[in-house]
Design a protein around this nucleic acid. Sequence first.
DNA 1: AGGACGAAAGTCAAAGAAAGACTAATTTGA
DNA 2: TCAAATTAGTCTTTCTTTGACTTTCGTCCT
Lengths: 150, 150
Amino acid sequence: MANISDTIEQFIKSFFGDSDSIQLSRNDLAHYFGVSPSQISYVLTTRFSVDRGYVIESKRGGGGSVTVAKIVGTKDDFLPELLKQTDALDALTFNKAASMTDRLARDGIITDGEAAIVKSAIGDRALAVPMADALRKNIFKEILVGLIRR
Amino acid sequence: MANISDTIEQFIKSFFGDSDSIQLSRNDLAHYFGVSPSQISYVLTTRFSVDRGYVIESKRGGGGSVTVAKIVGTKDDFLPELLKQTDALDALTFNKAASMTDRLARDGIITDGEAAIVKSAIGDRALAVPMADALRKNIFKEILVGLIRR
DNA sequence: AGGACGAAAGTCAAAGAAAGACTAATTTGA
DNA sequence: TCAAATTAGTCTTTCTTTGACTTTCGTCCT
């Protein structure tokens, strides 16, 4: 965790208390951490992506700001949706799959322990074969199917 | 013992104190010993492999690093033993893996929900690919490593 | 109302930082 | 001698950081 992006990510996350939406100023954050404003944008887009279960809205100009909101999903609607999306792909990178898995855990659809197992099973070391991304998609899909049926 | 790989191995091992996991920088180490970075990779993969009782994780890019962790366990620990046995195989059928998984659940090492996920991930539908048994062994191994580390 | 100005945030490309993969060469030990 | 282990080198991939430029919005001035 020696890079500043991770630190900023945690800092931003610490602002969600019970609320599932926060508002922040890109410039202020940049100043606070002594980095360039686009660094904040970078953290926002890489760490608070839709895959990870967040949406970002913003307003420019004087008094502008960035709003980060958690997308909350329930088991009943989110899992089938995720399955549909996954099925439509023909490959799935580890990062993407891990993001989705973390989000399932965040929303309480699976436990942290279960998330860890999923990530072990679809990690790059486990799938050290050609066409790993295609295979990963398949495995992840089967896991989702299993989750829906429970 | 006059070879530098052994020296580096010892040096790295000297960093584990009570802790069973350390973090290091490949470049720094390479520089420190005046060797090429890939030499460090070589030591890491040959001396800190799973069958020697270690796991390695890493992250690239700015602020990246390598984490080396001991697989801890005593003789009456079931998981490390199972890992060792699995690692020695070069293939693993679904039936065999499933019965090991069931046993883990029966013994309370993993929950039923976790067992179900494991079985989804290594099922024949998930691994519909040539050499499925070799791959399954690999995946199962990674799952075990993850379980031990938690 | 309309334009000028400043304050945000957005975009994108380039540079930098780290580890991984692959290959070739060399050394060592049986 | 010869296969396995070691060492080095180089290129690739991934992730991060920075900076320059653009777009949008609000306010103030006439």
